[in-house]
Design a protein around this nucleic acid. Sequence first.
DNA 1: CTCATTATGTGTAGTTTGTACACAAAAGTA
DNA 2: TACTTTTGTGTACAAACTACACATAATGAG
Lengths: 225, 225
Amino acid sequence: MSNQSIKLSVDAVVFGYEEGNISVLLIKRKYEPFKGEWAIPGGFVFNEESLEEAVERELHEETGIKINYLEQLYTFGKPSRDPRGRVVSVAYFGLVRPNAYKIVASTDAEQVQWFNINELPKLAFDHKVILKAAIERLQGKITYEPIGFELLDKKFPFSDLEKLYTTLLGRDIDRRNFRKKIVGLNVLDELDEKVSKGSGRPANLFQFNPKRYFQLKEEGIIFEI
Amino acid sequence: MSNQSIKLSVDAVVFGYEEGNISVLLIKRKYEPFKGEWAIPGGFVFNEESLEEAVERELHEETGIKINYLEQLYTFGKPSRDPRGRVVSVAYFGLVRPNAYKIVASTDAEQVQWFNINELPKLAFDHKVILKAAIERLQGKITYEPIGFELLDKKFPFSDLEKLYTTLLGRDIDRRNFRKKIVGLNVLDELDEKVSKGSGRPANLFQFNPKRYFQLKEEGIIFEI
DNA sequence: CTCATTATGTGTAGTTTGTACACAAAAGTA
DNA sequence: TACTTTTGTGTACAAACTACACATAATGAG
């Protein structure tokens, strides 16, 4: 099989969340194919780097971002997916706090921008399919793994968490029951700090406690919303 | 990136189930590297075939089996995982009814054999890691997708289903509650046939109804055990 | 043929979890 | 100071889960 001529690339769907909006990080391609079109950041894997290293490198090169949470999503291998020839792409799925980093376009990217997932532009390659898979994964996973916290500030008022879940799940949540449930999971620390945004009673701040979460997980107690 | 020299392969972890035993299909390698050692079936992807086609081809070539259920598991890309050089492997996860096919070794395989997942031999490459991931996926997935039926005969007594779940989940199940729950999901058809194996009251046969399952799924009713 | 053995089939009560729902407290603003 | 806005909290009812025992239909041994 020395005559195999398949190229391997990685792509990263990076989600951010801010004030009730879920957004994805996209780049405008500087070169052919699909020059000038929007695409998920990514690129070819170097011979000696791992797939994760490749994703982080490409992301940093093209967008300036450093990722918070990263997991493999799916590998897309349809022979026709890239006009240049056979390219198989391992797609990853990432989460960041958008305000924690400044996005800067460089190398293959002419521009970088956050897009609300409900207002997406036309995408290059099969990136629409990849993005769809990523959104489904995010929506599915948020109910049984505490990944939502990766999208919020370290310290957050309960209402932020609630708004994140209503946005992601696309349905209303009963505030009291939601809080009861999350508090019952016992993975949040209630801080002695309050935050006030505009009018209304100031909210207490909370913080996710990963240590406690992993302890509980080992004891077989599962996170589920 | 024309100087990328990464090879792409696929591997398939195929599970079977018979009489309280979950087993995996392994081959004994005919050639170097790892000649004579047991491994998951798989091989290099051809330039023009999709990943799924590659898996099915390799499986058929090496073991004679045709798969019942196939899904992508994970892509393993550690630079050091293959002594021949950089090989990235897309691992798949398959289910079959073992008695439905005759396994026959050929091409790269000197031998094919079902191994109980609790009595595994030493494995070539990083196949131990792959297998572990596959087992976890199987155990996880069986509680929220009706994939268990792919491991049973088309028509099966309830006790078979129950035994499958106790085996996979590694814990006892209350027979009455389990039956109540599954029947309540409304995805099984009760047939007018009975089967008797040795002594004991003959059991009614059941059959999974995929059509009904997909209907219910679209209505938002979820399968969960 | 009868009795012991084996596996299937079935209901109910108690507990736990989920759901629906409204008002007081603490801040800002006019 | 009173009006608006957002946070914080408890209870009653419904649904789901759990534990649990005995009758039924077959086989096999004596």
